[in-house]
């Protein structure tokens, strides 16, 4: 171990993080607060009734509802699905213009300016978690006044997707760097995690063994979405465990 003094003399460097998320299906009530928060945070356009009916609604995070059993003995299962930030992402390699690529932290970055709208990434994504601006986005007054200045507004013909609220990651990093300290677990959260009333969503550094998210990722309820595809997703789902079953049988 080098002495602390020597450490301080060296230029301060933030630890590189491996951001990940855990989704506890036991806790999810399907309230969709995360969806609304995501829309507000990330300037996601609302396309309107008609376009939404045509399947062009954009929600970077969505609550999938699955029904198990037959009426009246029916169980509803909520599964929040957002970009899984795969390590081997099928969307990245197919983009001809590097609009979709892997950034240094291992996130699937989407560079809007580079996107020419081939929509190949959206086909390649097995989670169907890429959203395309089929029409020019518009915000009805006064919604146009609440646009987040930290996030660029996308135009028609561009693919967009969940970024793990990269603007919040960068803001927290800049603050920490200014104060010459490392980021703390739970110091900041993406909008969906922040707004989840039941704390079903947990965000943090997967490389830090002490973080909540990495502890949850090791839970015996932990599972990945479509794991057989070998995409190495960074979102862990905590399947409905014994606690839920005990309460309901």
């Amino acid at each position: 171990m080098a002495p602390a003094k020597e450490q301080n003399q060296k230029a301060f460097r933030l630890k590189r993080r491996n951001w990940g998320m855990a989704v506890d299906e036991d806790r999810c009530t399907g309230c969709e607060a995360c969806v609304v928060a995501c829309h507000a945070e990330n300037n996601i356009a609302t396309v309107g009734e008609e376009q939404a009916a045509r399947g062009r609604a954009m929600h970077w995070i969505r609550i999938e509802r699955y029904y198990e059993g037959t009426f009246p003995d029916i169980k509803v299962k909520y599964q929040p699905v957002l970009c899984q930030q795969c390590d081997n992402a099928p969307c990245e390699a197919v983009c001809p213009t590097y609009a979709s690529y892997h950034n240094a932290e291992g996130l699937n970055a989407q560079i809007y300016n580079r996107c020419i709208g081939t929509r190949y990434c959206a086909n390649a994504c097995p989670y169907e978690d890429r959203y395309f601006n089929f029409v020019n986005p518009a915000w009805d007054e006064p919604l146009n006044l609440q646009l987040n200045p930290d996030v660029s507004v996308r135009s028609v013909g561009i693919m967009e997707k969940c970024t793990f609220c990269i603007q919040r990651i960068r803001a927290a990093e800049i603050n920490a760097e200014k104060e010459k300290r490392q980021l703390k677990d739970g110091e900041f959260n993406p909008a969906c995690v922040q707004s989840c009333p039941t704390e079903a969503l947990v965000f943090g550094d997967l490389d830090d063994p002490e973080s909540r998210v990495s502890r949850l990722a090791k839970s015996n309820r932990a599972a990945k979405l479509l794991p057989d595809l070998g995409t190495k997703p960074k979102v862990t789902y905590l399947r409905r465990g014994s606690w839920y079953d005990e309460q309901n049988t």
Binding site: A93, V94, C95, P96, T97, Y98, Y101, R114, C115, I116, G117, T118, R119, Y120, F132, N133, V156, G157, I158, M159
Partner: peptide, 24 residues
């Protein structure tokens, strides 16, 4: 989606400093 930018598939030294992605 943005057909006016189709020429970004052509590999030329552009002001954007980036080349097309040959794995696609």
């Amino acid at each position: 989606g943005r057909p006016w930018l189709f020429f970004w598939l052509i590999p030329y030294p552009s002001e954007r400093g980036i080349w097309p992605q040959f794995r696609s």
